[in-house]
Write a protein that binds this DNA or RNA. Structure first.
Lengths: 334, 334
DNA sequence: TTGAAAGCGCTAACAT
DNA sequence: ATGTTAGCGCTTTCAA
């Protein structure tokens, strides 16, 4: 049924070794036999059994990627770019999703290791670093992306959170905004970094910080659009009306835009709005939305390179900590 | 470094075989040794080398899923549900994306086969059936999903396209709409089926068909939101004003809604709007959008079951053709 | 109840 | 330039 090296060998009255050599591009084979072999390989549509090869060689030429959610476009970017990056070195990528659940994540990682992936790239949803401490000892090098337990030492590739807040605020300031509101996200370490970037940009651009223009994440509003809309309505009723708004997420920003337009004001002439996440499908609506792109592509590329390096360097590579800058994507809303 | 069966065996003064038996739940092992083994296995955090196992047993307990695009939320649904479905039988899923390119798809399928997946589930972007004719002869059973070359015989799971048009139109008619417009998609076989469903529903609900309420896909407007907006503006300027609009895609629908609201009309009171695709992020905007959900979850589940059956049935299963119904998701826009 | 031998398909190391 | 041997980690088969 399935064609094996031996079948081709028997077929051509050669040994398995010769076929194997040809397929791996060894030079100690006569051009004539080489041609014969290649032809027959093609005719029979032979596919090497990677499983068997890796049992022998010890590496599968595959990496495992574990992401928090399959439907998150950001990680789709990361995955695409990772795949493309390592393909050049003949590596394949096994994608698993933790679906937001730490236990699922652990199980998927276990499965990947059972399948002998040569390296692991993980955007983890674990709360604790314990689990990874165990992983650090595994055969496969580990590259964390997007998030990392603070005190844990490992390779890491992520986005420079502070720059998100900084660049967005600076962009608005550059556009002439002087009263820049900020719709905050949940109280996480990352969110705090963005926030401090916002503060830094204001200071640097000589825009005064006004606490009444900062909106904390409401507790009980699960609908982000609505939250953005309501927040903006309140801001526009306030004493100081913003002329620029930065939002922790694109959906918030859409709500903000609609609130502004509904009041008869213009975007960006009266109020400029910038979102974060650069979600597809949300960018080409009423007012095409400027947004902070979190450089998933770059993260995937750097993670791939890092994994490749860890794989090829004999010595264990000292832990690298790569922070890529986010990008301001300017559209009509600013 | 990596723990093997032999390590545990030596450790406990047993043979590899005994360890292997315990791990596979064979009964011919004394409870005492079994306990000892399990304990040591846990302590050493042993993970069986699936690669080696499958070399011996001939199956890897993995399926390959090839989708057209990683960032398509529909296929994310399919993947999630497929993974969950086959997990119960201890199968894992390798996900690859063709990124819309037939050549990439072929290469990814080749890689998956090289990695010895036991079954292939493919949402193909191939134009011709030729390629699959070759695949049909492979060891791994093939299940096509979402799309299938018409004349090609294979297992297939997809959505009943005609019902998309039918259910959407019927839903609008039920809501009292009598002038139901249709914004068509590209001229594909699937689109034609949806269209014929629309026609059938109109006939059945005694709503007269009006050609001037049908908008063909414009050639040169790549922005779907804009296309929906413009189309609706034109419809509202026409002789017959629609009181219901069904759209080939959710983004079109968002454009339609904004056009309606801008004219001072209400959604759904004056014009009801329904989209198609049920894209996340696009559902909770100004007017939460009713949409046709294409049952990716169900498709994934059925494809998984079909693959499992093909894998377990000794005889080759006669080709099944499974068409799942789409679902109307009613929100505020209708 | 336990274990020895053989072999899955491939390749590293070493003959010829 | 071609082939032989051995073995990767596991499981099937059969013997003790």
């Amino acid at each position: 049924m399935t064609v094996r090296l031996k079948d081709i060998a028997d077929d051509l009255n050669l040994s398995k070794m010769t076929i194997s050599k040809v397929l791996r591009g060894q030079t100690d084979v006569s051009p004539a036999t080489k041609a014969r072999v290649l032809q027959r390989v093609k005719e029979l549509n032979y596919r090497p059994n990677i499983t068997a090869r890796s049992l022998r060689t010890g590496n599968t030429y595959s990496m495992g990627l574990i992401i928090p959610a399959l439907s998150d476009p950001y990680f789709a970017d990361v995955a695409r770019s990772l795949i493309e990056t390592v393909r050049g070195q003949e590596y394949g990528v096994l994608i698993s999703s933790a679906e937001g659940d730490p236990d699922t994540e652990r199980r998927e990682i276990g499965l990947q290791l059972s399948r002998q992936v040569d390296a692991l790239i993980v955007a983890s949803v674990q709360e604790s670093a314990e689990f990874f401490a165990g992983l650090g000892q595994q055969r496969a090098p580990l590259v964390l992306i997007d998030r990392k337990p603070p005190s844990f030492a490992a390779h890491f590739v992520g986005v420079r959170d502070q720059d998100i807040g900084y660049l967005a605020a600076a962009h608005l300031a550059e556009r002439g905004c002087r009263k820049i509101a900020y719709l905050r996200g949940a109280r996480t370490a990352e969110a705090d970094l963005r926030w401090s970037g916002y503060r830094a940009a204001l200071a640097e651009c000589c825009v005064s910080f006004r606490p009444e223009l900062v909106v904390e994440p409401g507790e009980m509003q699960p609908n982000e659009y609505r939250r953005g809309y309501d927040a903006m309505v309140r801001l526009l009723e306030g004493r100081i009306k913003p002329d620029g708004v930065m939002c922790y997420a694109d959906l918030l920003a859409q709500g903000v835009i609609d609130a502004v337009l509904q009041r008869g004001l213009r975007v960006p002439a009266d109020v400029a709005v910038i979102g974060c996440g650069d979600l597809p499908w949300l960018q080409q609506l009423r007012v095409p939305l400027s947004s902070m792109n979190l450089s998933g592509e770059e993260v995937g590329k750097r993670a791939g390179r890092l994994a490749l390096r860890a794989l090829t360097s004999k010595e264990s590579l000292p832990f690298r900590n790569v922070l890529v800058p986010p990008r301001v994507v300017v559209r009509s809303s600013t």
